[in-house]
Design a protein around this nucleic acid. Structure first.
Length: 591
RNA sequence: GGGCUCGUGGCGCAACUGAAUAGCGCACUGGAUUUCGGCUCCAGCGGUUGCAGGUUUGAAUCCUGCCGGGCUCACCA
């Protein structure tokens, strides 16, 4: 890579000129802004302490040194403290030639020897998946792909939140008002049916609270003593003691939900390697907590609830077991983390893809794991992401503004169908191929939209924009790919690029952009941030479209130039495909 | 109230973690096809980066204060 080479030469230059040894990391190299002459720019301000000269003099001296010591540097110019270097066309052409034989360009060539586990999705089993889950799922899925591209082994996992008070709420409402309804008798998807009774519970509960308040009880008291919530709590205790009636009901309703979820995952082409069930892992968590009490790591209050003191982390004390002996969310998360490290010894990292409203929870979890003395605790990390809001504001289940995942996916595929039928080149496609294409475009647009924004930030979801075709969208990228495929089909056999081919500015810029791909993968992996890859790919495609528009490719008469342009196009499509694959987005050969 | 976090053209997002005149998309205005897929390209309009100080050769980026959102501090998950 030329940047590395230039940095080394610059370091040698500083040593030779000013007698100071520097690290290559201190050399700032960036692409030259388009309004200046040159390809790469070294910022010399940080070197002034060493040179003890003006920015202009330093840049001039360093420029002279570099151009005589690096034959890929043709010329240079100095603007203020910026040393602009012009790199020889032959360098760019040989770089293009090199990567154009690499179908896996950008991906690690060998195994890193490291293993990671990425947790994502992990829904509760009391209601269907919604838009918020989609951001979570696409993010976790993409981060997994990106880590794999770094040569790591990665396991996709979930914690299935299949126990707890929330499940009991659905069960209670179903028992009371369900009339033995099943997915079969109602034709409802299993997760939708169970979700219906979770909502039903909430309605009853609210009503009871209102009635209690009307009878003169305080709101706080009413919330604790409403009959429905007391019943649900009793159920949880019975469940933990494996009461067969409750346990069987729980199994039945959960099985409905899993069937529903599995359909949803299939529709978005997402799979997992290893599932963990809270109903299994909470037991291990409980045991560890009890052991921790005996070892004096945790303490018991008079009411026999168990707590941990986290003042060493400047965190409040945290409850680990309720007074009635049942466990909380944290208890099972402790058990799950331990189980995972038992099952996969030597994990280099365990990454939790969970919304930012749980940042505090994970700080506490990791602190507890450290308290327990697990040395892998510091390798656990929380991939936190911001909430998805609608133009109308926040999604609120109470107000019925939650965007259902199944509905959204269906909508987006249908929109893709309508738009593609209108303008597509589909004559040669069978019905099945067409359906697959609508799927690719609709889902691709949706994934692109949700992955485009920096995960850390909250984002706005506008249903109208999600599968827009113009601008910074999935279909825009897909179209560029399809168009290149069409071109390549007519291009004939590949030939090597001649290093003396003429290069225009726009062609050179495109090569430079292509060469940046490994760096984009690198950054997105380091930061666990797929949006960096999206931004990169979008810039690349814009650059390509501009190139495509400005010069003939197949109609070019000069054979060398024509061949170079074909290779440039082909390599662009390889990078598009390789990048989109990491985002979980398919690219069609025609659309 | 304590902690975390975010305020960038009308709207939605960038800015390589401190560098050149803050970029892009949507929307709006005007152009481009004897051309390989026009779901394309080119140009214009539009910003004192919430406000006020400070550090620095250089600040959207770092520090302090204020204003305004969001999240969180559960015997919920």
């Amino acid at each position: 890579m030329i940047n590395v080479l230039l940095a080394e030469i610059a370091v040698a230059g500083v040593l030779d000129l000013y007698g100071v040894q520097m690290d290559t990391s201190a050399i700032q190299i960036q692409e030259t802004k388009k309004e200046f002459l040159g390809d790469l720019t070294i910022v010399v301000f940080p070197l002034l302490k060493q040179s003890k000269k003006s920015p202009a003099d330093t840049a001039l001296e360093l420029g002279n040194y570099i151009s005589t010591h690096c034959n890929s540097v043709n010329a240079f110019n100095v603007v203020k403290g910026f040393l602009n270097l012009e790199i020889a066309n032959s360098y760019w052409l040989s770089s293009l030639s090199e990567i154009s034989n690499d179908i896996d360009f950008g991906y690690a060539k060998q195994n890193s020897g490291k293993t990671y586990m990425v947790e994502y999705s992990s829904p509760n089993t009391n209601k269907p998946l919604h838009l918020g889950h989609l951001r979570n799922i696409f993010l976790g899925d993409s981060v997994t792909n990106i880590l794999k591209a770094h040569g790591h082994q990665v396991y996709r996992t979930q914690i299935i939140n299949d126990r707890g008070i929330h499940i009991c709420k659905s069960m209670y409402a179903w028992l009371k008002f369900g009339n033995n309804e099943t997915p079969e008798t109602t034709g409802l998807k299993g997760d939708k049916l169970v979700g219906k009774y979770y909502v039903e519970f909430d309605r009853i509960y609210k009503q009871e609270i209102e009635d209690l308040i009307a009878s003169g009880i305080t709101e706080e008291e009413a919330k604790k003593t409403a009959p429905s919530i007391l019943e649900a709590q009793k159920m949880l205790v019975r469940w933990e003691s494996k009461d067969s009636e409750i346990y069987n009901l729980w199994k039945k309703m959960n099985s409905w939900v899993y069937e529903g979820f599995s359909k949803t995952y299939q529709s978005m082409h997402v799979e997992f390697d290893q599932l963990y069930y809270e109903s299994d892992t909470y037991i291990g968590g409980k045991e560890v907590v009890e052991k921790g009490v005996n070892e004096g790591l945790f303490y018991k209050k008079e009411d026999s609830s168990v707590w941990v003191d986290l003042s060493a982390w400047k965190l409040d004390d945290k409850l680990l077991l309720r007074a009635d002996g049942t466990s909380v969310y944290m208890t099972q998360d402790i058990g799950t983390a331990i189980q995972r490290h038992k099952d996969f010894p030597g994990l280099s990292g365990l990454i939790y893809t969970v919304g930012n409203e749980q940042e505090h929870h994970f700080k506490v979890l990791f602190a507890i794991l450290e308290t327990l003395g697990f040395d892998w605790a510091k390798e656990c990390s929380h991939l936190s992401y911001g909430m998805v809001d609608l133009p109308s504001g926040k999604m609120k289940s109470r107000e019925g503004t939650v965007v259902d995942a199944d509905d959204l996916i269906a909508t987006v595929i249908n929109d893709a169908r309508e738009m593609t039928e209108e303008r597509g080149h589909l004559q040669s496609l069978s019905m099945i191929e067409k359906e697959a294409l609508y799927n690719t475009i609709g889902l691709g647009g949706l994934k692109y939209y949700l992955l485009r924004v920096d995960p850390k930030r909250g984002m706005m979801f506008d249903p109208k924009e999600s599968i827009d075709l113009n601008g910074n969208t999935g279909p825009f990228i897909q179209y560029a790919f399809a168009r290149i495929q069409s071109l390549l089909k007519k291009a004939g056999d590949r030939k090597d690029i001649r290093l003396d081919t003429d290069l225009s500015l726009i062609e050179k810029k495109l090569i430079i952009e292509l060469l940046n791909f490994p760096q984009a993968i690198n950054e997105s992996g380091k930061q666990l941030n797929p949006s960096l890859l999206i931004n990169y790919t979008y810039d690349l495609v814009k650059q390509f479209n501009s190139f495509y528009q400005s010069v003939p490719i197949l109609k070019e008469v000069d054979e060398c130039t024509k061949n170079m342009r074909i290779e440039l196009s082909r390599m662009t499509s390889v990078v598009i495909a390789n990048s989109m694959r990491l985002l979980g987005i398919d690219v069609p050969t025609q659309m």
